[in-house]
Design a protein around this nucleic acid. Structure first.
Lengths: 232, 232
DNA sequence: CGGGACTTTGAAACCCTTCAATGCCAGTGG
DNA sequence: CCACTGGCATTGAAGGGTTTCAAAGTCCCG
């Protein structure tokens, strides 16, 4: 294991983030004018658990993690957000999770929830889009439930790689650039870091995946990755 | 362990289910006229995975489980629905889970999704309510993610009892009537049936809970149940 | 060049799953 | 009425997978 992924990814040289939003098709297109654009440092908190839920967010670039802190101090990640995903539109007046930027230079569009709700009242199409956003969040949660419900660690890690491969836009060829650390993966899959690392090693030794850098995974045997032929 | 819970619960003698809906405050109140009322047999399928998602549902009485069948034949339960919960409002044109009645005599209100969507277009208030329904589904999913993320079986079972105690309407005193079998609990918590049974026994021996019938749990030491003082 | 974050590997302890068997209860048919 | 069956629940023992504790290696960055 030699090269690693960069801890930060260069942002658009000119800082003209708004163009990124304009050039991207997404549900709240008609709200582009309402959006504030924000670039985040690595690890920066975007919204905090039990704080007033004033804003909704759209990921333009980078990766965001939604976490919950347990009583015992353990952290659980209840979702990753990648470009194209919305978050922050919650049921109550307070967020029930903390969101943090995973990558340096993560770029978000920020909306005022109150304003969005008002506009939706007079725009049925926008209202439908908001429902669609909520439904997609439900689908993501259910997908994660299915991953967490798997029995063995190797199965969970397999599913994780496949999920990232599906959701990440920046995949080229058969490679996936895992955008998060082993610790993040562990807290996402409810495993220990060591088990995550060992599971990846197992998959490598089986010839299912290959590494070109710690976080660069090449999918060698897609069937084995999907079907789990070793029935782990 | 002597007495058990009844496998079926008597329905309203007269079968006048619609009154149940009318007497219940809920989000889609204004759609009561649009709703069809249905009573289900134990185990009856309500909607099926990969089938057209034509309807949305509201649980008036009883319990519903949302399940997904795995490639390996295992079943995973991705949610229980109790009176007051909506389900079936999904992102795609097809359901991504199968819903089944858990209790004999489970009563549902059924809505035509297409019709509901149309009405929402001309009724901003209804549109807001639909979003609220979606947000609540998200909250339920996240709560389940937190349960599945717990480390030990006893912790998961503790959380399950507390969740049921919170969500079920028919709790009297400090007792919870677990509405589902050990098998259902196991598939919900991603544990084996035996482990669920053993965990309940552990909690009983610790004096945290007491049984009056297999499915009737009395909470003796609430603090221990909530905080997990034995730090399992 | 050294500190710090991240990653990997090893060994022991622990917990859960699996396999197997028993017990309980409700409904059924002789 | 009672034996019988099937579904559900509990308990035991063995095996295996994950966690925990410990340590070493890698890489980035100041």
């Amino acid at each position: 294991m030699k090269a690693t992924a960069p801890r930060s990814i260069p942002t658009t040289g000119q800082g003209n983030y708004r163009d990124l939003l304009r050039n991207q098709p997404h549900l709240l297109k008609r709200l582009d004018g309402e959006a504030t654009i924000m670039s985040c440092r690595r690890g920066q908190a975007i919204c905090r658990q039990n704080h007033p839920a004033k804003h909704g967010y759209f990921v333009i670039f980078g990766v965001v993690r939604r976490c919950v802190l347990r009583a015992d101090g353990r952290r659980q990640i209840v979702g990753f957000l990648v470009p194209g995903d919305f978050f922050g539109f919650v049921a109550r007046d307070e967020y029930n999770y903390t969101a943090e930027a995973v990558l340096e230079g993560t770029i978000l569009a920020i909306y005022l929830r109150r304003r969005v709700e008002e506009l939706a009242d007079s725009d049925p199409c926008l209202a439908r889009e908001l429902r669609q956003i909520a439904f997609e969040a439900i689908s993501r949660s259910q997908a994660q439930l299915l991953i967490l419900g798997r029995i063995t660690a190797v199965e969970k890690v397999r599913s994780f790689i496949l999920e990232m491969e599906t959701r990440l836009p920046q995949r080229r060829g058969h490679s996936v650039a895992l955008p998060v650390s082993r610790y993040d993966i562990a807290d996402y899959l409810a495993l220990s870091v060591e088990t995550v690392s060992r599971s990846l090693t197992v998959l490598k030794h089986r010839g299912v995946i290959k590494f070109s850098g710690t976080r660069m995974v090449e999918i060698v045997d897609r069937d084995a990755l999907e079907d789990g032929e070793h029935e782990d």
